[in-house]
Design a binder for these strands. Structure first.
Lengths: 136, 136
DNA sequence: TGAACATATGAACAAACGAACATATATAGA
DNA sequence: TCTATATATGTTCGTTTGTTCATATGTTCA
């Protein structure tokens, strides 16, 4: 459909649809892309999800938890970080639903919330390492 | 292995390994998690990758491009954004290797770089929408 | 070559973010 | 209840990030 729109080369010299400073070149393509737009609610959730994954400290925490359940103190030791810093990031991960926890006395054990987390991590790793290989 | 380490309940009351303010509770678990740590180089790349995905504008651009190739001007029209703003974000996406482009006269057409992008987007969407459903 | 258009880039500013420090909550044991 | 330990949270601060405005590069056509 996009192809046909381009093929007909329907140029629209008016600026009717654009907040953009230039002319709309392919109105049909624009319309198609617009109607396929991600809903604002999902868009926000998606952004939040990836944002949580975008921090090195949080990635390291997730990586550590992928080996198995750990308490806050252990995580701090693994990363060589303050308990406070770890706890703050755990709060972020908790809010995003990426980790679950379980209290046992004074100790709180954290674990990955579900398989989605592992999968996203793995997929990201694959892409990142392929990229790195391609650039080198 | 983690299980056994926990089962033996080997508490280490010394603070030898920890920059953390508290005692290391499960040294074996810590050691296991440490040896499974993501290499710094991959970690950085991974963080960068997800960071690029974490912005709503960039996600919308990627979403638009998932329908088909678009020129900068079209993208601006789809998002209702300035050409400058779009171009800046395209530069970020380009640097991350998430989009490819092709010049045709004055016009530059952008497209998704490879299937990894589509896959990551789809996976993120699935997780995000499942989460949203669970919270509602 | 010069004007018009499409895109890219530089600089500046406000908003968002993570680290660090201090402090609060919660649980166990005496 | 008082103390010690484990974790959580509030706040401040330096840095990063996205947008905007202005300008530069690059391409076509006359």
């Amino acid at each position: 459909m996009i192809e046909e729109a381009r093929a007909s080369d329907s140029r629209n010299t008016a600026k009717d649809l654009a907040d953009c400073s230039c002319y709309i070149v392919h109105p049909e393509c624009v319309e198609a892309a617009r109607s396929a737009a991600i809903e604002p609610r999902l868009l926000a959730a998606l952004g939040e999800l990836f944002k949580v994954f975008s921090d090195a400290t949080r990635l390291r925490i997730l990586g550590a938890l992928s080996v198995g359940e750990l308490c806050v103190c252990d995580i701090g030791a693994v990363l060589g970080m303050t308990q406070s810093a770890v706890s703050h990031q755990l709060a972020v991960l908790r809010a995003a639903g990426l980790v679950a926890y379980r209290r046992e006395g004074k100790t709180v054990y954290y674990r990955l919330a579900d398989d989605h987390v592992t999968t996203l991590l793995k997929m990201g790793k694959e892409h990142a390492s392929e990229r790195a290989r391609g650039e080198a």
